[in-house]
Design a protein around this nucleic acid. Sequence first.
RNA 1: GGCGGUGUGGCGGAAUUGGUAGACGCAGCGGACUUAAAAUCCGCCGGGUAACUCCGUACCGGUUCGACUCCGGUCACCGCCACCA
Length: 732
Amino acid sequence: MQERYEPNLIEPIAQRYWNEQRSFAAKEDASKEKYYCLSMFPYPSGRLHMGHVRNYTIGDVISRFMRMQGKNVLQPMGWDAFGLPAENAAMMNSVPPAKWTYDNIAYMKKQLQSLGLAIDWDREVATCKPEYYRWNQWFFLRMLEAGIAYKKTGTVNWDPVDQTVLANEQVVDGRGWRTGALVEKREIPMYYLRITQYADDLLQALDTLPGWPDRVRAMQANWIGKSVGVRFAFTHDIKDSSGKLIGDGKLYVFTTRADTIMGVTYCAVAAEHPLALHAAQSNPQLAAFIEECKQGTAQEAELAQQEKKGMDTGLFVTHPLTKEPVPVWVANYVLMGYGDGAVMAVPAHDERDFEFAKKYKLPLKPVVVPRSWKGRQFEESTEVLDGLARPSLKIQDEKNLDEFYFNWNNWVPRLAEHGICVKSGKYDDMDYDEAIDAIAADLKEKSLGDKQTQWRLRDWGISRQRYWGCPIPIIHCDACGDVPVPDDQLPVVLPEDKVPDGSGNPLNKDPSFYECACPKCGKKARRETDTMDTFVDSSWYFLRYACADNSKAMVDARVNYWLPVDQYIGGIEHAILHLLYSRFWTRAMRDLKLVKVEEPFTNLLTQGMVLNDIYFRKPAAGRIQYFNPSEIDVKLDDKGKPVGAVLRSDGQPVEMGGMGTMSKSKNNGVDPQKLVDEFGADTARLFMMFAAPPEQTLEWSDEGVQGAFRFMKRLWRSVYEHVNAGPTSKLD
RNA sequence: GGCGGUGUGGCGGAAUUGGUAGACGCAGCGGACUUAAAAUCCGCCGGGUAACUCCGUACCGGUUCGACUCCGGUCACCGCCACCA
């Protein structure tokens, strides 16, 4: 054993030994308690970043701890290898995404090994390999048979120049990020997975996951978005040009406030609603308005910022209880994708309806009063606002000091509170719950509605008009329709030699891929060229680790030994989609009797981001220039507080921008490879584990790394001294 | 607007079920070694005081022999979701 601590000498020796001995290969052993420790697998972007190092170090420490506790530990690793960045890199460098991806995997695997992680590399998977994605295809066909997968037309962002579908993030200010062309909404056929069928289960079962952070469970519950209310219909006799009643003469709406049904003064429908489209046929102005609503992105968050706009259709529907005519408006605040794309509007008790009614001078009608008014006399009156007569209700407060009344100058939140029904005929004096029960019962009796549960969650559209993904195993035949690829012809292999040029999916232009024979009738047919969303790949990789070598089946009995994952570690950014899809997919596999496990992840740790200082200069004209902290000298005052910073190369001051997530755009990243090369993996790992609790953000500090390095050196020396002192010691 | 979280020295953060607040690290200060520097090592390091049995865990109050920890309220910050009817 040598006196000097030289990690670059000793770490590779240990790593080679582990590799040769297969020290971390896990074997199923029913006599031992298993422990499955899983880190979210990386996208092979090219190099590891500090977030990876943190993630895998946390997992490795937990694995080590559990191994020392005598558990049979599995810690696998793989590659989330399909996806858009490979296509972009391909365009820039004229390299096929496959080559780019495999090269990156080779490099990053070396990096991971140099970190000394106790990974069982025998179980490595890469989602872009046919051995893996054939089971995506196989199980997709099983879901199709079971009715969990289905086809329907869906709305996408379409770039008319590139002839391609854009993800929401690729739409900037309503234009394609590459072409700058105005993005269109387009209806195209896509495959969907019926995750909504599992909505209630996915929501309820969140309570069985005490090992998950509260906020992640809350985020999932929000996303699923259960809401209980009443779905009912207004009636009408509006017919289309062929004389058919639109929607069978019913305009369905959903409401959580059925108690306000007597206060309805208009109905609002989404721009894409059949009634709106019908009215637009004879109304060019309305048609133009509908076109305007269709512009922009399919992203809902942006809709929330828009001003409320609408237009009268001139159509009327009949109120199901009062039989009064109710005007139908098109409104941009109504979403086609939620419920039936239509709402009943009660401007006296709903903020959005209020704002809309005020803008377009629509009537309003108060029908709910505070509970404190119960059993007391109130006065009806009319006030004139904006030249309109507005009905108001007044009451003396209990101390007879003031008058409380509805006034319609501004919205007040109290108007939306639950209360007592008034001016509602037979429902007068009923409280919220009672009124809803009574109204739902009456609507049911008329066969015009009932209580219903509505979900925010939508079915999962998995079709992507993209090349670098798992092909959807369907063949389109003019005679037989959509025919599944027979199991014995799986996998449908993605050709790996294509180089996308930005003008759509190369599979569309490759006859050797899309030309095929119909498996049913043998006639010439066309292969589906859409590929699957990459979230499909990551929805079950944790199952495959248990049986990665099985070429005959998707999963086998070993899955039931290892699953569920005892500890899952990864970024909070996957709190909703990846984790929800995985929970759904596992349930689908359970229902098709492939696995026993229902909840795949028992404990979840969402590790914090890695932050670093931000330094910049803001020139009088032009872009902000960011400087990497390694190029900066910080000035301290007497107490050691930072008071300023200068760029080392020119000695001139730079602005201190506080701390932010390490990113290319802020130029504040630290390359893990440099860190490992200089100080060794142990120092890097020690610092990361030590500087902050795993769930919290970690503030990078070069001095902190030095401290960890000093610690390692001291540790080395004390071992060295021990070895020299002890006559029989053979530590080296 | 809804939901979730967090507030402790100059800084990152400890404090297992309510029992010595500030572990450990960073920065800072003093010292040793050195011709000098780096590296390394030792000591000090919340505030106040001449001193202590003083004050101090965002703020106000409560429970308790005892509160960073439990309860009620306030303030501030962060994250996610959001015309969801």
